[in-house]
């Protein structure tokens, strides 16, 4: 077996030729979330906004008695938030012992993609996108951006410092 450029999931990749992704749609773009990170896919009922929170935090929601902190993938990608629709699709993700939700426009099928087909982020990708993208798959009908959950939710992400540097005056913008 040949060694390939290693990523965070090097072991998993080395063991299997393909990886499964839950595909989600945001602003017409297809993204892939590694299936092992995804616990649930559900429709958000009511989201409680968190005042003073970083802009990407959409709010808190109740998922069968658990409080799920929900982030908007649109806001993470600095896209315009579409008009507030009730019943948004949310992908439930476990990270570092906490429950998170990623609000997306839509959820598609699960794709099994060959590891060796994963291409590096194109160098002209917007840095805000590149930060959370692990690479790109070229599908028949378009491109799929693989999301790095670690970068989205982890402490190494820009979230934590931005939150602390958040000026007290600035309010929550719904």
């Amino acid at each position: 077996m040949t060694l390939m450029p290693r990523s965070g999931f090097a072991d998993a990749e080395a063991a299997a030729e393909t990886r499964d992704y839950v595909t989600v749609l945001v602003d017409g773009q297809l993204f892939g979330l590694p299936i092992e990170c995804v616990h649930d896919v559900f429709i958000a009922s009511e989201i409680t906004p968190v005042p003073l929170a970083p802009p990407e935090v959409a709010g808190l929601l109740n998922l069968r008695g658990r409080v799920v902190t929900t982030l908007s993938l649109r806001r993470i990608l600095r896209l315009e938030e579409g008009e507030a629709r009730p019943g948004r699709m949310v992908v439930g993700v476990e990270y570092a012992g906490e429950s998170f939700g990623l609000a997306v426009d839509g959820v598609g099928e699960v794709l099994s993609l060959s590891v060796s087909d994963l291409q590096l982020n194109p160098i002209n990708l917007d840095p805000r996108w590149a930060r959370i993208a692990k690479g790109v798959h070229w599908l028949e009908n378009g491109l799929l951006v693989v999301i790095d959950i670690e970068a989205v939710l982890g402490s190494g992400s820009a979230e934590a410092p931005r939150a602390s540097a958040f000026p007290p005056q600035k309010g929550f913008q719904p």
Binding site: V50, P51, L52, A53, P54, V57, T69, A96, E98, F100, L153, S155, E159, A160, A163, S164, F166
Partner: peptide, 10 residues
């Protein structure tokens, strides 16, 4: 959630 802790008001 940890990412909301820095708000320090909740």
């Amino acid at each position: 959630s940890n990412i909301l802790k820095p708000i320090n008001i909740f």
